[in-house]
């Protein structure tokens, strides 16, 4: 499947900030299930984009725009060819052994309820129990698709009964680690059919490591393993390490945010 992605974030400020600095993880890399055909980032301000790689192997871009900045548009655009690998993630960039992904991370800590949830999963293998977890989360929690809703902690999202995609991933990760299965967070995009009811296509899911299989994707928000519709952009211990944008500003006030994403299957249009 060829997927064309246009991802634009528009920041508008009531009082323009003196400067804005952002760290972007918006650039996908290749693995067996995807090939990046072309990709570019653009900032509509006079600044230099500095590229680097983070500890997990994600591509990172940073910039500082000097103000006053009444409006700032950050856009990513490109085309990716994807292949169905039944959820297996092979030949991705790996900087750590799977053991690292057992460590706690702030957004994916299992509280008592999540610990109970993890232990209640039935199955004759870790793999089976993870699938049970995938199904349970998909059934139990409402998928909140409002793109303006922020990410919270796994425990809070689970207690609330409704979760954005990243929250789903965090709950899954917290429980997997509780089962002593290495798990990590993935941010990316998804090309959904028009009638899917999901408005936005910035997406997040989880990956878990099973010794005999390697890393396997789990998308608890959609209740399935990632398919060709998924474009994997960045991975980390949790959302904080893989977020498309982390930014700060000096001065300024009244930020309004508008995210416009267009993800389409570019062959079948």
């Amino acid at each position: 499947m060829r997927i064309r992605i246009q991802y634009e974030t528009v920041y508008t400020y009531a009082t323009p900030p003196r400067s804005v600095i952002q760290v972007l993880r918006m650039t996908p890399r290749n693995h067996e299930g995807q090939h990046v055909i072309d990709w570019r980032l653009d900032i509509d301000a006079n600044c230099i984009l500095k590229a680097s790689e983070d500890g997990f192997g994600n591509l990172v871009h940073t910039f500082t725009a000097m103000g006053p900045i009444p409006q700032l548009i950050v856009s990513a655009e490109g085309e990716v060819e994807t292949f169905d690998t039944s959820g297996f993630v092979r030949n991705a960039i790996e900087r750590f052994p799977p053991e690292l992904y057992l460590r706690q991370s702030p957004l994916a800590i299992a509280d008592e309820r999540l610990k109970a949830l993890a232990t209640s999963m039935e199955g004759d293998s870790d793999h089976a129990r993870l699938h049970a977890l995938l199904d349970t989360l998909h059934e139990k929690l409402d998928f909140d698709t409002d793109p303006t809703h922020g990410v919270t902690t796994a425990a809070r999202a689970y207690a609330a009964g409704a979760a954005v995609a990243a929250d789903f991933a965090h709950i899954f990760i917290a429980c997997a680690r509780e089962m002593n299965v290495p798990a990590r967070f993935v941010s990316g995009h998804i090309a959904l059919p028009e009638d899917s009811g999901v408005r936005h296509a910035a997406h997040a899911w989880a990956e878990a490591y099973i010794p005999d299989y390697g890393w396997i994707g789990f998308d608890p928000a959609l209740g399935k393993c990632p398919e060709e519709s998924h474009v994997r952009v960045a991975c980390a211990l949790d959302h904080l390490g893989a977020a498309p944008v982390r930014g700060a500003q000096t001065g300024g006030d009244g930020e309004a945010l508008d995210v416009r994403i267009n993800v389409v299957d570019s062959q079948n249009q």
């Binding site: 983070d54 500890g55 997990f56 900087r95 750590f96 052994p97 053991e99 690292l100 057992l102 460590r103 706690q104 211990l237 390490g241």
Partner: peptide
Amino acid sequence: PPDIIYRNAYFRPEMAGR
């Protein structure tokens, strides 16, 4: 034992390879 490093809260994966 590897987990003494990998699961250590003060081990910073961000610094790996630097």
